[in-house]
């Protein structure tokens, strides 16, 4: 039995790592080769689609299909003046909830409606990525730091550019060199300049937190599930007790899986609402 010992740490990292293959539902494996690197001056890029790219594309396609089908169904219902019913109405309710409760409530009435598509896309894209990772053979793209960093960088750009557009260059500079209440003259200028690094750091820390929160939550869930499943491999060789280990481990995994579904929703919500709040803060900065 000992020769079948599995290195669980290795397994965890392998499971959450990216790769040039997919295993749909764990039934079979499709592999492809890494394309040659691209050299753009000092940068080395490799744009070979990876497992996470494939799953992001699947998630995006599913989000679009869901919305598109819901929209069509709603149009048909309205054309027939029928009362709203069915899953399309549920999708409509969620989309309107994201639009009204997350975007408009946190950003403001005028700008909120404008940013609503971005917030909605963010929420559903992250949610679908999270949920796809829970399927057998699925991969959690949001459990990859590059993906969450890309989304957070996009959020940072959105926040800062929307602030620049809304506040104007002068108003925007005020968010970096803040006005010091109760101070005037040279003292205020010195304090303002002294505060600038802190303000800039503050601007960067918020998306950084977004990036790591999503990544950490998604990765940690998978680590916990794999660790609990790993109990079977570690203690399964114990005679007379192996069935109890199996049942215990499976029960715990089931519980964590259920929790992961909640976490998938909560993290999508958290990412969307914090982005909305940060956009709103820039919209109303003085």
């Amino acid at each position: 039995m000992m020769q079948e010992q599995v290195n669980i740490g290795e397994l965890m990292l392998h499971h959450t790592a990216d790769g040039y293959y997919i295993e749909p539902f764990g039934l079979f494996k499709i592999e492809w080769h890494r394309l040659p690197d691209l050299h753009l001056g000092p940068l080395t890029l490799n744009l070979t689609p990876t497992k996470h790219v494939v799953f992001m594309a699947i998630a995006a396609a599913l989000v679009f299909l869901t919305m598109w089908a819901a929209g069509r169904s709603l149009e048909k219902q309205r054309a027939g003046e029928k009362p709203p019913r069915g899953w399309a109405n549920a999708i409509e309710a969620i989309v309107l909830w994201v639009r009204n409760e997350i975007a408009i409530d946190n950003i403001g009435h005028e700008a909120g409606a404008k940013f609503a598509p971005y917030i909605t896309a963010l929420f559903f894209f992250i949610l679908y990525c999270n949920l796809l990772g829970l399927l057998p053979g699925g991969a959690t793209a949001t459990g990859n730091l590059a993906v969450t960093a890309a989304l957070a960088a996009l959020a940072l750009l959105t926040i800062e550019i929307s602030g620049l557009v809304k506040l104007g260059p002068k108003g925007y500079l005020r968010t970096i060199f803040p006005t010091m209440p109760g101070m005037s003259g040279a003292g205020a200028v010195v304090m303002s300049i002294a505060m600038a690094p802190i303000e800039i750091l503050g601007k960067l820390v918020k998306p950084f937190a977004l990036c790591f929160r999503l990544f950490g939550n998604m990765t940690a869930g998978h680590f916990v599930i794999l660790a609990l499943l790993g109990l079977i491999f570690m203690f399964g060789h114990l005679e007379h007790w192996n069935w109890a280990i199996g049942i215990g481990s499976a029960t715990l995994v089931l519980g964590v899986m259920a929790l992961e579904i909640i976490v998938a929703f909560v993290q999508a919500y958290v990412f969307a609402i914090i982005t909305a709040v940060l956009i709103g803060m820039m919209q109303h900065a003085h």
């Binding site: 679009f64 896309a121 894209f125």
Partner: peptide
């Protein structure tokens, strides 16, 4: 292409492209 902690530039660009298209 790297583990979960790797900041793969290719993946970052893919994320932007996919999210942008969506």
């Amino acid at each position: 292409p790297g583990g979960p902690f790797a900041l793969e530039p290719g993946l970052i660009i893919w994320t932007w492209v996919i999210f942008g298209v969506l």
